[in-house]
Design a binder for these strands. Structure first.
Length: 1102
RNA sequence: GGGCGAUUAGCUCAGUUGGCUAGAGCGCCUCCCUUACAAGGAGGAGGCCACAGGUUCGAGUCCUGUAUCGCCCACCA
C-alpha cells in the first residue's frame, strides 16, 4: 500500500481527490455566530456565460482558491460564493450571431420568447462547462450555493432594489444621447465601443444667412465628417468672444514657453506662430459672426429648409475649421451638451435600425422647445435611406447640385464600432433609465446615515480606508472615475436580462395638471385599492407627446395583482432590460439571500476581499460599493485585490473576443491542475502582468509550434494569396496550422476550427512551457515524499529537547519556523509569488537538497554512533524530524497545490498516523488536509535559532567550495579527499562543532580545521567569506596561482571600497551603529584574508 | 491630451521604510544514469540595475528630466 508511482501522474489523482472533498462537504459554509474577524468570505466574480474560461480566469480563481483554502486551514469560518453572470448584451450578441450563421435567422424572426429560450440553452451549456473548468482547477467554492444573475432569487433582489431606488428618487428616466448599435438595436456602454481609423472626407458646407445686413457674409461655412447628420442640425455656433479666446490661448502658450524644456520650445513656438496666423486670417470674420449671432441672425439649413439660429457657444473653437460648428444635438455628444445649454430643439433623424427617420420639425410655440408633431415636407426624399452610406451620398450630391459645397478634403477619422456586432456606432437620442450617482438631496444609506450621493459615499469609504486596495495605486483609478459622478444608464434595449419592472400609462390631459407630486397622480388610479396604491412608486416622465404625458409606476415586488390591474387599464410594461451590471452590483448580498434576512447574509456579509481584474474597477467594483452602502449600510468587502493580467506571447491581454484565450483544461490535461496553479501563483507578482507565450502541441508528433510563429506564417500565406489584411491577425484567424517540426510538418486544427476540421486534421491543445516549472515541482514533491515514506513508517513521536538534536535537525526546524512565519505575512499582503519562492526554497533547497541528503546515512542506519548520539537515536530523530517537516510542508503547500498534497497526506496518515513534536506542537491527523490546521502565524519560536542559520550557510559555502575544487581537479565523486579549512578564531568553535556536515556533504576523508596555517602542499584553494578551503593533492600550481591572483584582486577591490566608506566621517556619524560595526568586522576579515593570500601567492612564486 | 505602470543576467521576473559583495527560475557550459526524483543531482559562467542630472557619508532603491514600451480614461466639427 505504500507504493507510489515513480512519476507523479495528476490525471490518476485529481478526480478522485476532488470527489472526496465534495462528498465530505469540505467546501460547505456553515453560518453560525462566528465573529466577523474570524469569518472569511469571497464572492467569486461571476464569469460571463458567453463562453468558456481562459487562463485569465484560471489565474483569478486560483488566487481566490489559495486564499480560501489558506483561511479555511487557519480556522476561519469560510465561504467562497460561486456563480455565473448572464452578461446581457455580450451573451445575446453571441447567440444571435450563431443563429444567424447557422440558420440565417434574426432575433425578430424568432421572437422574444424563442430567442430568450435559446439563450437559456446556451447559458446551461456554458455554465456547466465553466463550472467543470473551475472544479478541474480545484476550486473549493461552496458549489451547492452557486447562483446565476438571472435566477429567481436574484431577480427578486433586483426588483427590490429597483423599487427602493425608484421610490428614493435615485432612478429616473430621461432622454440621453447613447451609443447606438444599429445592428443589435440597443444602447451599448462606452466600454463596449472600440475605435477604428477609417479613410473618409471632410466636407465644407455653406449654409445661407437669412437677410444678412450690409457687410455681413451671405453664407456661414461649417465642416463635417458626417454630412448626413446635417438633417438634424438645429443651430450653428460661433465662439462668443473670439478675440478674448485668442488672447487667452496666446498667454497660455507664452506661459508654457517660460517653463518648457528646450525640446518643447520649437513646438510651442510654431503653435504660437500658427495662432497668430489664424488670428490674422479669421478673427475679424469671427467677430462679425459672433455679433450677428447676438443680433439674432438666422440661417436656412439647406435640403430640409429649416430655419436655425446662429448662436454663440464656447464649444466652437476659433482655431478649427472655419471657426463655426454645426450643432446636431440628437447625434453628437458635444452638440448635445450645447443643445442642453442653449435649449435647442433636438431632432432625431435616425431610426433604431440605422435608416433616416421621418423628421419631425420643432414646434416653436412649445416651451421648453420640444420636438413637434409636424412632419418635414422633404421627408419623402431622405426617409428610409441607409444612414451613413446612402443618405450621406444623397446629402452630398444634393448640396453639390445646389452649389453649397465649399471644398472636400481627404481625412482619416476614428469611427466608433460596437464591440458586439462590429458595426459602426451612431450617437442616438433615446429614452433611457438612469441611476443618479451625483450629489443632490440628502440620501439615506442602509445604516441610517446620510450621504450627498451614491458616488460620494462610495468615494468616502475608500478615501478613509474602510476599503483597501491592493496594490494601493488602484484606489486612484476608482476615485478618479467615481469623482466624475456621471449618471449611470441602466436600460438596455435587449431581450436577455432583467426586465425593467416599470409600467407606464399615457395620460391625456392638461399638461399643467401634472407635476412630479405623487398625490396628483394617485388620484387617477381609482381602480386600485388604497393598499395597492401604497405599493406603487409613481414618477412623471419628462417630455410629452403632443398634449399627452407619460406617467410611470414602479410596482413593489410580489404584487402580480397590481400588475394585472395596470395591464387591464392600458398600462404598458417597459420593454427594456437592465444593464447587466445592475444585477452584478447586487452580487455581494443578493447571492447571500437578500432581501431575506438569511443566516448566510448575517454571517458572511460583508465579504473579506474581492479578487478581480483592473478593467472592471469602475464598472463593477465601484457599483458594488455604491449599492452595498445604499442597501446594506456596509461596504461589500474590506479589501480589493487586483490581480495581474494574463498576456499572450505578443503582450496582449487574453480575452474571448480576441481569440487568444487558452483553455485551462488543456493545461490541466497535460501538466495537471497543481502545476497550473503553481506556475500561476509563481508568476503573480505585484507590478508585472503575466506573459504567457503560447504553443500548439502537435497531435501528430507531439512537438510544439509557437503560436506567434503560426500567426506570422498565416499572415504571409494570406498576403501571398493576395488577401488584404485590414487588421492585425488574431489567433482565432488560425483555424489550421502546420507543425513547425521539420520531420512532421503536418497540419492540425486549433480550438477555433469547426468540428469537421478538427476531426479531419486532429486538434492541437494549447500549452505554454511556463507550466513545466510547476509540473517539475510536483514531481519533486512527490518523489521526496516517496523517499521519506520508505524510512519514516511509524516514526517516533517523542518529546524531544531541541538542544539535544543534531545541528542539521535544528537547522531545518529553524528554517521551517522562519518559513511558516513568512508565509503568513505574504498571504496577508497577497504576495503570491513570494509565497511560492519561499516555500520552494524551504522545500527543494532546504529540505531535499540539504536536509535529506545529509540525513541519508542516518536514515539508512549507516551513520556511526558519536559521543553524543547513538546511531539508533540519531536515526529516530531524523525520522521524527523528517516526518514532521513533510507534514508541515504539505500543509503549507496545500493552498497552492491542493491535489498532490492531499494525496500525499492520505498516504502519510497511513504510514505515520502519530507524528509531531510534542511539547512544541500537538498534531491531529484524523482529518483531510483540506481541513487540517496551518502552522501558527508566528512560526515555532521554540525552533528559532539565528545562530544555526548563520553557521549553516557558512558550512554550505564551504561545501560548495570543496565541490567546486573537486570538479575542477577532475576528482571522481566516489573518491574521498583531504581538506583543510582555515578561518578566524571567532568562527572556529561553531565550525568545528558542525564539521561532520561538511564531511558528509563534500566526500571528505580527513578534515583539518584551524585558525592559522599554511597552504598544504599540492592543494587547491578557494577563498570565501571569512574562510579559506584547501583540497589536498590536486597539485596544479599554475591553476592555483591563477585562482589566488583572482581572489586577491577581488578582495583588494572590496577592501578599497570598505576603507573608503569607513574613512568617511559622514558614514561613521550618519549610518546606524550596527551597520558601521558590520562593515568594520567585514574589513578586518578581508584584511586577514588578504594577508594570508599574499603569503600563499608568494609561496607559489607569484 | 490626462492618469498609471514598466525598463535589473540570453529569456521571464524578484529585490519590503536608501546599507548590495545585486538574487531566483528557465536557458547555457562542465561533471554525474549515486538504490526518491534525468521532470534529477553537483558545480560554473553570465549584470556600467534604460540614459542624463540631482539629494545623500552612501542610490537598483528617493527627486528631476530624457528615451522606449505597455495599460487605463477622455477627446478629435
Amino acid at each position: 500500500m505504500f507504493e507510489l508511482e515513480k512519476v507523479y501522474d495528476p490525471r490518476a489523482v485529481e478526480p478522485e481527490i476532488f470527489a472526496r472533498w465534495e462528498q465530505s462537504g469540505a467546501f460547505r459554509s456553515h453560518p453560525g455566530d462566528t465573529p466577523h474577524d474570524r469569518t472569511f468570505t469571497i464572492v467569486m466574480p461571476p464569469p460571463n456565460v458567453t463562453g468558456a474560461l481562459h487562463l485569465g480566469h484560471a489565474l483569478n480563481n486560483t488566487l481566490q482558491d489559495i486564499l480560501v483554502r489558506y483561511h479555511r486551514m487557519c480556522g476561519f469560518n469560510t465561504l467562497w460564493q460561486p456563480g455565473t453572470d448572464h452578461a446581457g448584451i455580450a451573451t445575446q450578441a453571441v447567440v444571435e450571431r450563431r443563429i444567424l450563421q447557422q440558420e440565417g435567422k434574426t432575433r425578430h424572426d424568432l421572437g422574444r420568447d424563442e430567442l430568450v429560450r435559446r439563450i437559456w440553452q446556451w447559458k446551461d451549456e456554458y455554465e456547466r462547462r465553466i463550472t467543470s473548468q473551475l472544479k478541474l482547477l480545484g476550486c473549493s467554492a461552496d458549489w451547492e450555493r452557486s447562483r446565476f444573475t438571472l435566477d429567481d432569487g436574484l431577480a427578486k433582489a433586483v426588483r427590490h432594489q429597483f423599487f427602493k431606488m425608484f421610490k428614493d428618487g435615485l432612478i429616473f428616466r430621461g432622454k440621453r444621447l447613447v451609443n447606438w448599435d444599429t445592428q443589435l438595436q440597443t444602447a451599448v456602454s462606452d466600454d463596449e465601443v472600440y475605435h477604428e481609423t477609417v479613410k473618409g472626407h471632410f466636407w465644407h458646407f455653406r449654409y445661407p444667412v437669412i437677410d444678412p445686413k450690409p457687410g455681413e457674409p451671405q453664407h456661414v461655412i461649417i465642416a463635417t465628417t458626417r454630412p448626413e447628420t446635417m438633417l438634424g442640425d438645429t443651430a450653428v455656433a460661433v465662439h462668443p468672444d473670439p478675440a478674448g479666446f485668442f488672447d487667452q490661448q496666446e498667454s497660455k502658450l507664452r506661459d508654457a514657453l517660460l517653463k518648457c524644456s528646450a525640446k518643447e520650445r520649437a513646438e510651442i513656438e510654431s503653435k504660437l506662430a500658427a495662432l497668430a496666423d489664424r488670428r490674422a486670417t479669421h478673427l475679424d470674420h469671427l467677430i462679425t459672426l459672433s455679433r450677428m449671432a447676438n443680433d439674432g441672425r438666422k440661417l436656412r439649413l439647406p435640403l430640409v429648409e429649416r430655419i436655425i439660429p446662429l448662436i454663440t457657444d464656447e464649444w466652437a473653437d476659433p482655431t478649427l475649421g472655419s471657426g463655426c460648428v454645426k450643432i446636431t444635438p440628437a447625434h453628437d455628444p458635444n452638440d448635445y451638451q450645447v443643445g442642453v445649454r442653449k435649449n435647442l430643439p433636438m431632432i432625431n433623424v435616425l431610426t433604431p435600425d440605422g435608416k433616416i427617420a421621418k423628421i419631425m420639425e420643432p414646434d416653436p410655440a412649445a416651451a421648453p422647445v420640444k420636438p413637434g408633431s409636424s412632419e418635414n415636407i422633404h421627408n419623402d426624399i431622405y426617409a428610409g435611406l441607409e444612414f451613413s452610406t446612402q443618405a450621406r451620398a444623397k446629402v452630398v450630391a444634393d448640396m453639390e447640385s445646389r452649389g453649397l459645397i465649399e471644398t472636400i478634403e481627404d481625412r482619416e477619422t476614428e469611427i466608433g464600432h460596437s464591440d458586439r456586432s462590429k458595426t459602426p456606432i451612431e450617437p442616438f437620442l433615446s429614452d433611457q433609465w438612469f441611476v443618479r450617482t451625483g450629489d443632490g438631496e440628502p440620501l439615506q444609506l442602509g445604516d441610517g446615515s446620510y450621504a450627498t450621493g451614491l458616488a460620494q459615499a462610495a468615494m468616502d469609504v475608500v478615501s478613509n480606508e474602510d476599503i483597501e486596495f491592493f496594490p494601493a495605486r488602484y484606489a486612484k483609478t476608482y476615485l478618479d472615475w467615481l469623482g466624475e459622478k456621471r449618471d449611470w444608464c441602466i436600460s438596455r434595449q435587449l431581450w436577455w436580462g432583467h426586465r425593467i419592472h416599470d409600467w407606464y400609462i399615457v395620460w391625456e390631459g392638461p399638461y399643467s395638471d401634472y407635476t412630479s407630486d405623487s398625490q396628483t397622480v394617485r388620484m387617477d388610479l381609482d381602480y386600485l385599492t388604497p393598499e395597492q396604491r401604497s405599493n406603487l412608486a409613481p414618477q412623471v416622465f419628462p417630455g410629452r407627446l403632443g398634449n399627452r404625458i407619460l406617467v410611470g409606476f414602479a410596482v413593489a415586488p410580489a404584487h402580480p395583482d397590481i400588475e394585472t390591474a395596470l395591464i387591464a387599464h392600458d398600462a404598458t410594461q417597459d420593454p427594456d432590460v437592465l444593464d447587466t451590471w445592475f444585477s452584478s452590483a447586487l452580487w455581494p448580498f443578493s447571492t447571500l439571500g437578500w432581501p431575506e434576512e438569511t443566516p448566510h447574509l448575517k454571517q458572511y456579509y460583508p465579504g473579506t476581499v474581492l479578487v478581480t481584474s483592473r478593467d472592471i474597477i469602475t464598472n463593477w467594483v465601484a457599483r458594488m460599493v455604491m449599492f452595498g452602502l445604499y442597501t446594506m449600510g456596509k461596504v461589500p468587502f474590506d479589501r480589493v485585490y487586483i490581480t495581474p493580467k494574463v498576456l499572450d506571447g505578443r503582450g496582449e491581454t487574453m480575452s474571448k473576443s480576441k481569440g487568444n484565450g487558452v483553455d485551462p483544461v488543456d493545461v490541466i490535461h497535460i501538466y495537471g491542475a497543481d502545476a497550473l496553479r503553481y506556475s500561476m501563483a509563481d508568476m503573480a507578482t505585484e507590478t508585472q502582468d503575466i506573459r504567457m507565450p503560447i504553443e500548439y502541441l502537435c497531435p501528430h508528433c507531439g512537438h510544439l509550434t509557437e503560436q506567434s510563429l503560426a500567426l506570422k506564417n498565416e499572415e504571409q500565406s494570406r498576403k501571398s494569396r493576395g488577401e488584404k489584411l485590414e487588421r492585425k491577425l488574431q489567433p482565432a484567424d488560425c483555424l489550421r496550422v502546420r507543425c513547425t517540426h521539420k520531420e512532421c510538418a503536418t497540419e492540425f486544427a486549433t480550438q477555433w476550427a469547426d468540428d469537421t476540421l478538427k476531426k479531419e486534421l486532429g486538434l492541437a491543445r494549447e500549452v505554454s512551457d511556463k507550466f513545466e516549472i510547476g509540473r517539475n515541482f510536483c514531481n519533486k514533491l512527490w518523489n521526496a515524499a516517496r523517499f521519506a515514506f520508505r524510512y519514516i513508517e511509524n516514526a517516533p513521536c517523542d518529546r524531544l529537547a531541541v538542544s539535544d538534536l543534531l545541528p542539521e535537525d535544528r537547522w531545518i526546524l529553524a528554517r521551517l519556523s522562519e518559513t511558516s512565519r513568512r508565509i503568513h505575512g505574504f498571504m496577508a499582503n497577497y504576495q503570491f509569488s513570494a509565497i511560492v519562492k519561499e516555500l520552494r526554497d524551504f522545500f527543494w533547497d532546504g529540505l531535499c537538497d540539504w536536509y535529506i541528503e545529509l540525513t541519508k546515512p542516518r536514515l539508512s542506519g549507516e551513520a556511526a554512533s558519536t559521543s553524543t548520539h547513538s546511531a539508533e537515536a540519531s536515526k529516530r530523530h531524523a525520522c521524527q524530524v523528517l516526518a514532521f517537516c513533510l507534514d508541515q510542508s504539505l500543509r503549507l503547500w496545500h493552498p497552492i497545490m491542493p491535489f498532490i498534497t492531499e494525496r500525499l497526506w492520505q498516504q502519510l496518515n497511513g504510514i505515520v498516523p502519530n507524528r509531531g513534536m510534542p511539547g512544541v506542537v500537538e498534531i491531529q491527523t484524523n482529518c483531510d488536509l483540506i481541513s487540517a490546521p496551518m502552522p501558527p502565524t508566528d512560526g515555532y519560536p521554540a525552533f528559532d535559532d539565528p545562530t544555526i542559520l548563520t553557521t549553516f550557510s557558512q558550512l554550505q559555502e564551504a561545501t560548495r567550495a570543496v565541490r567546486d575544487l573537486r570538479l575542477k581537479g577532475n576528482i571522481v565523486p566516489k573518491q574521498m579527499v583531504d581538506v583543510t579549512v582555515i578561518l578566524s578564531d571567532t568562527d572556529l568553535k561553531s565550525f568545528r562543532a558542525n564539521a561532520h556536515i561538511l564531511r558528509t556533504t563534500a566526500g571528505i576523508a580527513s578534515l583539518t580545521i584551524t585558525s592559522s596555517g599554511k597552504r598544504p602542499v599540492n592543494s587547491a584553494s578557494l577563498a570565501i567569506h571569512g574562510l579559506r578551503v584547501y583540497v589536498h593533492d590536486i597539485g596544479d600550481d599554475v591553476m592555483e596561482r591563477e585562482r589566488t591572483t583572482k581572489s586577491l584582486a577581488d578582495i583588494e577591490k572590496q577592501i578599497v571600497g570598505k576603507q573608503g566608506k569607513l574613512n568617511n566621517p559622514g558614514f561613521i556619524s550618519g549610518a546606524k551603529a550596527d551597520v558601521v560595526a558590520a562593515e568594520r568586522e567585514r574589513l578586518d576579515q578581508l584584511q586577514q584574508q588578504l594577508a594570508s593570500l599574499r603569503i600563499q601567492l608568494g609561496e607559489l612564486g607569484g
